[in-house]
Amino acid sequence: MVATSTLKITPEILKLIAEIDEFKGAWRALGTLAPERLSALRRVATIESIGSSTRIEGSKLSDREVAELLSNLDIKAFISRDQQEVAGYAAVMETVFQAWQQIPITENYIRQLHRDLLIYSEKDDWHRGQYKTSSNRVAAFDADGNQVGIVFETASPFETPRLMTELVTWFEAEKQAEILHPLLIIGIFIVVFLEIHPFQDGNGRLSRVLTTLLLLQAGYTYVPYSSLESVIEQSKEGYYIALRQTQRTIRSDAPLWEPWLVFFLRALQQQMQRLRKKAERESLLLADLSEISAQILEHVKDHGRITIGEAVTLTGVSRNTLKLHFRRLVANGHLKLHGQGRGAWYGF
Results as ranks from 00 to 15, higher is better:
N108T: 01
R55D: 02
Q340L: 07
L206W: 11
E22T: 08
L216H: 05
I20T: 02
K8M: 02
L285C: 07
I190D: 00
S121V: 15
L337Q: 15
F199K: 05
S59F: 00
A99H: 12
V92D: 01
Q269W: 07
S80F: 05
E291Q: 14
I47N: 02
F326A: 10
L322S: 12
A90H: 14
S227G: 09
D63F: 11
F199G: 10
S293Q: 14
N332D: 15
Q270S: 13
S135G: 11
F263C: 06
R111D: 05
K123H: 13
T32D: 12
R137K: 10
V330G: 13
K175N: 14
E233N: 08
Q112W: 04
R266P: 02
N320R: 14
V192F: 00
A173F: 02
S49P: 12
W345C: 11
D116E: 15
V223D: 01
E280Q: 14
I292Q: 08
E280R: 09
D82V: 06
H197N: 11
I188N: 01
I185T: 13
I186P: 01
T10N: 12
L206K: 13
Y109W: 12
R248M: 13
A77W: 04
I17F: 01
Q217V: 04
Q217K: 06
I79V: 09
W126E: 04
Q340D: 15
A267I: 04
T54E: 07
T154M: 05
R43K: 15
T212P: 04
V191A: 00
S252E: 13
V138S: 10
L243D: 00
Q98T: 11
A18I: 04
A45N: 06
E68N: 13
E68A: 14
A331Y: 13
L16W: 03
D201Y: 03
K301M: 03
F263H: 05
H114M: 05
E12F: 08
D142A: 07
A177H: 05
V96L: 08
A173L: 09
I185S: 03
I17R: 08
